[in-house]
Write a protein that binds this DNA or RNA. Structure first.
Lengths: 145, 145
DNA sequence: TGAAAGATTGGTAAAATACTAAACAATCGG
DNA sequence: CCGATTGTTTAGTATTTTACCAATCTTTCA
């Protein structure tokens, strides 16, 4: 389980948007950067990718910004992961290429696939509504509206 | 779940050694390369790393080579993973650094850790004895002594 | 002693990562 | 309609990681 900075920032950004889900006003990139110290230029790319994957929507112009494309309950860590990393496939490229030649390597390939499937399951198990809820129930001196 | 070529080769090599577990003779690098098309120079490094992690042992000199350090039943995919990638920690470096400042990010950190723990569990669930066994029970026209 | 194996060191080309910068386009308040 | 404010797009780049190769050294056994 290796997380790139890009994915970590993406999750932080989506979580921030999830906390503003009740508000109608879109959240500006600048706001997210200020809140979590994410490099602004980098976040631009990340949000564009999330938008391309249908996770967030954007509003242009003054008073513009980003919002979640759907309810936080319908967005999982897996959605963010796939938006940034692309599909789960072709990751075991070397093993897959040799599986046809060797019975034992093909068994190994199946094992890797099983592990990957498990990972997807546990990423799907976590919604951003969960995360928002968890951060509320624990004692927290800070409020958002 | 991203697998580097290094990890894939490592797993293939360990599996090859697992299949020779009954034999007393160590397996040469050249043999593994010939069997699975692993780049020889690269495999040298990989086996050294596996040796450093205590997964394999080596015998120098003529008729030397590599062997598993313990029974295939006691070696899991997780062992290979950790040997190559290092410990599971500090992978969520960015999120971890910001967790102290923000309640919500700290909740996110916990979620990432949970996913990582699940991955470790499923990697630990697969032993190389399992893999050898699976490759035997399925119909296979090729034999290894 | 000399061939055959691993051990160690040092490199390196290519790709990925983690950004930065700048010009562009859309929106809205006045 | 103007201009400030926001997102959009494209291009570039420094750094790091990846995936190796090569050469030299050390150990072992016949």
């Amino acid at each position: 389980m290796r997380l790139s900075a890009k994915i970590e920032y993406a999750a932080i950004a989506v979580l921030e948007l999830a906390q503003h889900w009740n508000s109608d006003e879109p959240v500006r990139i600048r706001t997210i950067c200020a809140a979590h110290g994410v490099p602004a230029g980098f976040l631009v790319q990340i949000l564009l990718q999330l938008k391309g994957a249908g996770v967030v929507t954007s509003t242009r112009g003054a008073a513009g910004g980003y919002q979640l494309a759907r309810s936080p309950a319908e967005i999982t860590l897996d959605d963010v992961f796939r938006a940034i990393e692309g599909p789960d496939e072709l990751i075991t490229a070397i093993t897959a290429a040799r599986a046809a030649q060797s019975r034992s390597v093909s068994v190994l390939l199946d094992a890797w696939k099983e592990v990957a499937a498990n990972e997807t399951d546990s990423l799907r198990a976590v919604t951003f509504a969960d995360l928002v809820e968890r951060s509320r129930v624990t004692s927290n001196p800070m409020y958002y509206i």
